[in-house]
Amino acid sequence: MMMRRTHGMTLIESIIALLVLAIAISALMANFLPQVRDSASAHYQTRAVMLGQSFLEQIMQRAFDEQSVDIVANDPLARCGENSTACTPANALGAIESGSAEAVAYFDDVDDYIGCWYSAGTQNECSAPRYPISNALGENAAAQYANFRVEIKVFYDADFDAKPDAAIGPMKRIEVSVVGGQYGSYTLNAYRGNF
């Protein structure tokens, strides 16, 4: 009687099978991981645009110019540039008291917002003046927007060419650029007229 020998996998066959399995898993992960990373991109884009939109809404609710604030209090139909009150010169736009978080509560015209609004980790990338990201009430909201930075520019642009005018004009361009870390920069623009 002859004995039958059963054959199992040899050590070399086992090593080859493990190697093929490792290559297959590596290929699968190489295709899967970028999709996981990119799925966060839409979330950051949405948050960046919402943050920019909230800043733009805050700014658009303010007066055209610092000089307009005082005039409108006395005469709601008056504007700076009319009568004897001139609007703020182009080279003097910006907050009267800038750089402090407390000053934000007193922003009353669109060019007060010129500067950089930062969250944790982005302050060193900011231009001056710098403020922590805050909500419309002036409360610090930087914790909700970690790794975001908002750069705001406001300048006269009467001819709508997106370039600053040296002279006082009837329109101010507001540019709100939100930087969302590695997910890019998003810019929102609006015009505020002297009316």
Rank of each mutant, 00 (worst) to 15 (best):
A166T: 14
L51K: 09
N91E: 13
M3R: 12
G184Y: 02
V20K: 05
S100V: 03
F195R: 14
Y145Q: 04
Y183C: 00
V104P: 02
R173K: 15
G180D: 11
I152H: 06
Q61D: 12
Y191G: 11
N147D: 15
V176S: 08
A167T: 13
D157C: 06
C80Q: 06
S134M: 14
D109I: 01
G94K: 02
M60K: 14
L137K: 13
D157N: 09
S185T: 15
A78P: 00
D70I: 06
I71Y: 02
I133V: 09
A120R: 12
L33E: 03
I16F: 11
V110D: 02
K163P: 00
M2Q: 13
A40T: 11
I174F: 08
I174N: 08
D161Y: 02
I96A: 13
S177R: 12
S100Q: 10
S98I: 01
T122A: 01
A22R: 03
Q58G: 08
R4T: 11
N194C: 08
A92S: 13
R192L: 14
S68I: 01
N189W: 07
A166C: 00
S41F: 11
G138M: 03
M3G: 06
R37V: 12
R37N: 13
P129V: 05
F155K: 01
A162T: 11
E175V: 14
N91Y: 09
A78N: 08
E13V: 02
G169F: 03
S100G: 09
Q61S: 10
I59F: 04
E82S: 13
E125I: 04
F32R: 09
D70C: 03
Y106S: 15
V72R: 15
N31W: 10
L19N: 09
I174T: 00
D65K: 10
G81H: 01
A30F: 07
E13Y: 05
L51M: 07
F195T: 06
A86H: 08
S14K: 09
D157Y: 05
S98C: 00
Y183M: 02
T88M: 12
N189A: 12
A27K: 00
E82A: 13
D159Y: 03
D70F: 13
G94A: 09
Y145G: 06
S100T: 15
R149F: 00
A63H: 15
T85M: 11
R37G: 00
G180F: 01
D111C: 00
R130V: 14
I152N: 04
I16S: 06
Y44I: 00
A103I: 09
D112T: 02
G99Q: 05
I16N: 03
G52F: 04
Q45V: 06
N147Q: 14
V49R: 14
E151N: 15
G8H: 08
L11M: 14
L137V: 07
A78K: 10
C87R: 05
P132F: 11
Y183P: 01
S84I: 11
P129N: 06
Q182A: 15
A190Y: 04
V49N: 07
S185M: 10
C87D: 08
Q123A: 15
F195H: 12
R192W: 02
F55P: 02
D161C: 03
A95S: 07
D112C: 11
H7W: 04
Q35K: 13
P129F: 03
Y191A: 09
A105C: 01
A90T: 07
R47K: 13
N124T: 12
T187G: 03
P164Q: 08
G99P: 03
Y118E: 10
S84W: 11
